[in-house]
Amino acid sequence: MTVFTCGQLSDVAHNLGGNLHFQREMPGELPVLDGEQQVQILGDGLVLYFSQSRDLVDASSQNRLAPGITAAFLLSGEAEVSLPHQRLHFDARPGGQRAMLVNLTDADQFQRHWQCERQETKVCLSITPGWLQHFAFASQLCSDNLLRFSRNHWQNLPWQPSAEILQRAHQLLARDAGLPPLLQRLQRESFALDLASDILRGIDAPPEKRLGNHLERCLLRLRGWLDSGEANDLSITEMARQLGTNPVDLQNAFRSRNGITIAAYLRRRRLEQAYHAICQQSLSIEEAASLAGYEHLSSFSAAFKRQYGFPPSQARQ
């Protein structure tokens, strides 16, 4: 990790086309950020950005966001930003809002709120108007939803990255250090294209099928149970009974809303808890396995590797 002073961070932002400045005056030599930032500009108009950082000050700053579609999501930690007429808090923990998806027709300012010692690991992809013009509009592949989205300034959608995208992002950050530069670039280019596809699918997704009010309330309560751990010892039949519905309707509605079954969501959430416990709380692999609900270490290691692409022993590296 590298410690950036206020002046150095402003220079980095300027080199990337931004215009970073803090709302209160700070000395140029004041350390403000401890972290690492990696930017890959692809020739066809996609810009992929990875950052791992820790705030060293309490402050607010403004920066310029380029025109086009920008998607950003957290792999860990928290972040807080302000868009015009909207303040957003992002949290990578299960149940939190970890992502945003916005479109700008012109360059504009956004605000970031800093909190000393707050950490975040973030992935961001910018899709330039030129990329859209060449690959979507000119080839007549642009849907009505995408066309409407791209024509509105500060258009904002409640997008969340797919489980596959989250898994690959974790893998890229874990493996990059040991890869030759060319292979690293090729893997990131492939990831950027797949992420762009995931983003465009999110824009084109049809409105969610409306469920009955009772089932909507059941899903809301169920997500709270799953994320808090209250449902860890309940079967789906028991969940449905306590919610006042039947297991088939509950399972079908949950899959429709989240793209996976209740059991798969619960396994993923437990593994996310184990991952953060290993990285941030220094739990042993055995303790993390128990936290995730696994009796056998081999089963936990296999499930962890399927989700993140590397064994739990490498999670701290």
Rank of each mutant, 00 (worst) to 15 (best):
Q97Y: 02
A92L: 08
L173C: 06
V123R: 06
F90S: 04
S126E: 08
D106T: 15
R93M: 02
L104H: 10
T121Q: 15
R168Y: 05
P180A: 15
Q133H: 12
A138E: 00
R185P: 00
E164F: 14
Q111N: 04
H89P: 01
L183S: 13
M100G: 09
N145H: 06
A107H: 12
A177H: 10
E164A: 11
P181I: 08
L173Q: 12
R112E: 02
L166A: 07
Q109L: 14
S162Y: 08
A136T: 07
R98Y: 00
L183N: 07
G178H: 03
L179S: 11
S76A: 15
L132H: 12
Q167G: 15
Q97P: 00
R175I: 07
L195A: 13
L147V: 05
L173Y: 04
F149W: 08
D176K: 14
Q155L: 11
E80M: 09
E120K: 15
V102C: 03
F135N: 11
Q155C: 14
Q119D: 01
F137Q: 12
D91Q: 12
L83A: 07
E164K: 15
Q140L: 12
I199Q: 05
S82E: 08
A99N: 01
R148Y: 01
G95H: 01
R93G: 01
N156Y: 07
Q155E: 06
E80T: 14
Q171P: 00
R93D: 00
L141W: 02
L88E: 08
A92S: 08
F149D: 03
R87D: 01
S162L: 03
V102T: 11
L179C: 10
A79C: 06
L195N: 03
F135M: 07
S143E: 00
N152W: 01
S82W: 01
C124M: 14
Q109P: 00
G95N: 06
R93I: 00
V123Q: 02
A174S: 15
K122N: 04
F110N: 02
P94Q: 13
F90T: 09
A107E: 11
S76W: 03
F110G: 05
A174F: 09
A196L: 04
A138L: 11
Q167E: 00
L200M: 11
F135C: 05
L74D: 06
Q109V: 14
S143H: 06
F149S: 10
I199C: 05
A169N: 01
F137L: 13
P94D: 09
L166C: 12
S143L: 03
E80Q: 14
Q133M: 07
D176P: 02
A138I: 04
Q97I: 09
F137K: 14
R112M: 01
P129R: 11
A92F: 05
L141I: 05
L146M: 02
A92M: 04
S162I: 10
K122F: 00
D176C: 08
H170V: 13
L132I: 15
P158E: 05
A169I: 05
E80C: 12
D91H: 14
H134V: 06
D106L: 11
P129L: 02
Q140P: 09
S197Q: 08
H89Y: 11
T128M: 06
P129Q: 05
I165R: 01
Q133F: 08
Q155S: 12
C142N: 10
H170P: 06
S82P: 03
F135E: 06
